[in-house]
């Protein structure tokens, strides 16, 4: 398997606030990587820094052999990264169809329709409410729309920021099923932040534990699960 994303000695934050210290992370083609850690450890900041929504102070972000840490925020998606944000993940005033079209903003105009059909075949439930305004959807439906929109740009790598947060157990399971399905069918690489460890350990191939802006563990999900000390101290599980 070839390497898709490599993050090297990344230091990042917001303005004068230093959040992430010397982060190293690798993600191979088709791999799903989880980033876990307590609240406020800098998980979202890490995803934001890949998208230049947070400031990178030093270090490198290499995607498919190309350094992207100096790119402008709006150019990142054209390198093949889709991002499902935790908050504000849809445009509430636009219809679902327009949300998806907006997700394909960087694709050539004639490919949009074709890509939309592909995405809808992967995330079937969305097709039903294509004409509805996104703001009128429930949380679970909205999350699916957001996931579909993030897929519209033909990403090689998908960043998922807590896709099941705030959802009912049923909706969470539905989203997890979609993500798993996505991984099996498309071999898309994923970086996932998730609090719901039970759901996630089934899906991911590799785990990183982020605490106070530093990576203190990386390895197989089973290794993390078997390290009771780490599980108890940082994740509250035993």
């Amino acid at each position: 398997m070839s390497q898709l994303l490599r993050v090297q000695d990344l230091n990042a934050g917001y303005g004068a606030i230093h959040v992430l210290f010397d982060i190293n992370l690798e993600c191979d083609q088709g791999q799903a990587v989880a980033i876990v850690g307590p609240n406020g450890s800098g998980k979202t900041t890490f995803l934001n820094s890949i998208f230049r929504l947070a400031d990178i102070f030093s270090g490198r972000v290499v995607l498919d052999g190309k350094e992207i840490q100096r790119e402008k925020a709006h150019r990142i998606t054209s390198y093949g990264i889709g991002y499902l944000r935790q908050e504000g993940n849809v445009f509430p005033g636009l219809t679902v169809e327009e949300n998806l079209k907006m997700g394909a903003f960087n694709l050539p105009g004639k490919e949009v329709k074709e890509r939309m059909d592909e995405v809808l075949s992967l995330i079937k439930p969305v097709e039903v409410f294509l004409r509805r305004t996104a703001g009128t959807l429930s949380g679970g439906e909205r999350e699916m729309v957001a996931l579909a929109a993030a897929l519209m740009c033909r990403p090689k790598l998908l960043l998922l920021d807590e896709p099941t947060s705030g959802l009912s157990p049923i909706a969470s399971a539905q989203i997890a099923e979609l993500v798993k399905n996505l991984k099996d069918k498309t071999h898309l690489s994923m970086l996932v932040i998730e609090q719901n460890l039970k759901i996630m350990f089934d899906i991911v191939d590799k785990c990183y534990l982020l605490v106070s802006g530093r990576m203190i563990f990386s390895g197989q999900p089973e290794e993390l699960q078997s390290d009771r000390e780490l599980m108890r101290t940082y994740l509250g599980l035993s």
Binding site: F51, A73, T77, R85, V90, G93, L94, E98, M102, F105
Partner: peptide, 14 residues
């Protein structure tokens, strides 16, 4: 229109 609603998301989408 997207920009008017969610600027950060609009950036993420390119």
């Amino acid at each position: 229109r997207a920009l008017a609603e969610q600027p950060a998301l609009a950036i993420v989408m390119g």
